[in-house]
Design a protein around this nucleic acid. Structure first.
Lengths: 144, 144
DNA sequence: TATTGTTATACTCTATAACTATA
DNA sequence: TATAGTTATAGAGTATAACAATA
């Protein structure tokens, strides 16, 4: 215990394990909502006050633009989001939450904050520490 | 800053972001190896000394058994793993690394430990802390 | 010409259900 | 009957390449 290499391996192993394990148990908050992790994330990214251009979603999700088309298609079919022309540039489409989408989004946030997910197991201090560590991990690399 | 609810939301957001962002940048270590995260994870789980029954892989991956069939198929096609009968129970098949698979697995571990992935940004102390937090998150729920 | 979003295509991951062979 | 793994099928996520509309 204490070797930096071993700690890195252990941390990596736990991170991977955490994601595989939580994929379904806390499908990123989709408790009973039947939303995929990617769909939940998109919903989470959509501030009710501020529609987001599709290209920006692709950036944030680190995925190809063609992917966002399908993702938004499925959310739109379910009546959770809506495409709208951006106006200033007619090539751009912005995505906004519908009323139903807003409700689902609020429910997701409730679940997260309510401790019904895994984060609830950490003390307040530990949660702050986790935030700090993740911010460090995300610095530079993911830019923003 | 300081509200437990806000910290939980922030932690969740960062965790999700981390996974989406790292999916490709550090495809769980697949730097140039062209392996999916799931494939990397399977390789990581296969101790060269100890073949693993397919059912056990399904448990660890928290996925259906039929999924493991395809996963192993693809790894076997690439010559990285091998199916073998377990002997004691002829229904069971154990998966073992091939020589090539062992080399790829070692390479993965090198990448993780070598700091070429995101974990390299954390100090040794922070890595230990991260390990502790993840262990807490994984306790009970995922039960190993 | 360059950019935004779409379509077509293909592959991986995932689950469910029906099946085979063992037990 | 029950269990381990497979097959068939379907849907979601992902990428690349070619395309339309717009800039």
């Amino acid at each position: 215990m204490g070797s930096p290499h071993l700690d890195a391996c252990r941390a990596w192993q736990l991170l991977v394990k955490f994601f595989f394990a939580q994929r379904e148990h806390m499908p990123v908050g989709g408790g009973g909502l039947d939303l995929s992790p990617a769909q939940c994330y998109v919903l989470y990214l959509l501030d009710p006050e501020e529609p987001v251009p599709m290209g920006r979603l692709a950036e944030t999700l680190s995925c190809d633009a063609s992917n966002v088309t399908g993702l938004v298609d499925r959310l739109e079919t379910r009546g959770l989001v809506q495409r709208r022309s951006a106006g200033h540039d007619r090539r751009v489409k912005v995505i906004e939450l519908t009323r139903a989408g807003g409700r689902v989004r609020a429910e997701l946030q409730q679940q997260i904050a309510g401790g019904s997910c895994a984060l609830g197991k950490l003390s307040a201090a530990d949660r702050r520490t986790l935030v700090r560590l993740l911010e460090t991990l995300l610095a530079d690399a993911a830019s923003d």
